[in-house]
Simulated assay, not measured.
Amino acid sequence: MTITQLQYVLAVAEYKNFTLAAEKCFVTQPTLSMQIQKVEDELDIQIFDRSKKPIQLTDIGIKIVNQAKNIVNEAERIQDIVDQQKGFIGGEFRLGIIPTIMPTLLPMFLNNFIKKYPKVKLIIEELNTNDIIEKLNNGHLDAAIAATPLEEEKIKEIVLFYEPFVAYVPENNSVFDKKEITIDDLNLDEILLLQDGHCFKDSILNLCKSNGKTEHRNYQLASGSFETLIKLADEGLGTTLLPYLHTLELPEKAKAKLKQFAEPKPAREVSLIYPKSELKIHIIDALRATIAGVIKGAIVFNNVEIISPKPNK
């Protein structure tokens, strides 16, 4: 069997459809089907149960796919070894970034990175955390920037910085006159949240639940953007929490409504994450160094308490 044949097997295992897998592999469906049939004939087993819709892996097929992933990864590592030996930092690099980090962090490092490493073709996707984990595990991303810890078995995490939460409090709120606030001042009934699927929302829920105050309000407002949450708060519909970097470019009128937390400040851990196979590690290291260089002056908080993005069960 060949590496290409194993790549076809992995594509069908992922997409559960021969036609779609063929499109993703840029071959015709008959070609892909024939090559997979050759693998099954050679091994004298069935990798896929074609009688089911969508196509399912057989029990032995699950084991073969897991091993095929290892083989394909190790084959790709050969080019990595050559690139590192030559000191070459280039080629396609697929990076995922969660929505609550992308608008503030990406403009800080992107220009520096592409100028320093012009041979890298950086392909950036804005994705939620679950999609990032899935794409990392399936080999469709080389790395990502996300809130951690995620505690994923096949993923490594390198902490880039700790970003505190900042409260946005309208004048009519009972804590507006406080210089600093604490977690005990938060009431989940009053907090405007991002839509489901945002790990920032999960972090806030974990933060608020730690003070014993639960949600009882008779309406629920959720939005996909911090800008909308700020406008809703200005209308007197509640308060919201923002990541620190997002507050830096707010107009002065809005900044007057920001309330810092007392130390240790609740914060999220922002990390560069990548598969444990460490493919393209030389580009990952270059990306980490670039971000570290530009973020150093913007994030200087040390005494923080990390709030996990993983939902509390």
Results as ranks from 00 to 15, higher is better:
residue 19 T to A: 15
residue 30 P to D: 07
residue 306 I to F: 01
residue 204 I to D: 11
residue 128 N to I: 09
residue 90 G to F: 07
residue 158 I to S: 08
residue 223 S to M: 03
residue 166 V to I: 13
residue 61 G to P: 10
residue 22 A to P: 04
residue 285 D to G: 11
residue 238 G to P: 04
residue 3 I to W: 00
residue 280 K to R: 08
residue 59 D to Y: 09
residue 176 F to I: 01
residue 153 E to C: 07
residue 117 Y to P: 03
residue 307 I to N: 08
residue 244 Y to D: 14
residue 170 P to A: 01
residue 20 L to I: 13
residue 80 D to T: 06
residue 7 Q to V: 00
residue 195 Q to L: 01
residue 138 N to Q: 04
residue 273 I to V: 13
residue 172 N to G: 03
residue 91 G to F: 00
residue 145 I to E: 15
residue 92 E to T: 15
residue 214 T to S: 13
residue 5 Q to K: 13
residue 125 E to F: 13
residue 258 L to M: 07
residue 55 I to R: 08
residue 274 Y to G: 05
residue 82 V to L: 07
residue 276 K to M: 05
residue 107 P to Q: 15
residue 234 D to C: 05
residue 236 G to K: 00
residue 25 C to F: 04
residue 24 K to D: 05
residue 291 I to K: 05
residue 136 L to N: 04
residue 302 N to Q: 11
residue 202 D to K: 15
residue 121 K to V: 09
residue 275 P to T: 03
residue 82 V to I: 15
residue 299 I to W: 06
residue 41 D to H: 05
residue 68 A to K: 03
residue 151 E to D: 12
residue 39 V to C: 05
residue 11 A to F: 03
residue 132 I to M: 12
residue 10 L to F: 02
residue 91 G to P: 00
residue 184 D to C: 08
residue 93 F to V: 10
residue 185 D to W: 05
residue 137 N to T: 14
residue 25 C to T: 09
residue 255 K to Q: 10
residue 79 Q to K: 13
residue 238 G to K: 08
residue 227 E to M: 04
residue 243 P to M: 13
residue 202 D to I: 06
residue 157 E to K: 14
residue 128 N to C: 02
residue 292 A to L: 05
residue 118 P to N: 10
residue 172 N to M: 02
residue 307 I to A: 00
residue 131 D to K: 10
residue 43 L to V: 02
residue 256 A to V: 01
residue 168 Y to C: 02
residue 67 Q to N: 12
residue 107 P to C: 13
residue 201 K to G: 02
residue 149 P to K: 15
residue 82 V to D: 11
residue 83 D to C: 01
residue 76 E to I: 00
residue 65 V to A: 10
residue 309 P to G: 03
residue 9 V to T: 11
residue 250 L to Y: 00
residue 282 H to S: 09
residue 161 F to E: 14
residue 264 P to I: 10
residue 257 K to M: 13
residue 292 A to C: 12
residue 285 D to Y: 13
residue 262 A to E: 14
residue 13 A to E: 05
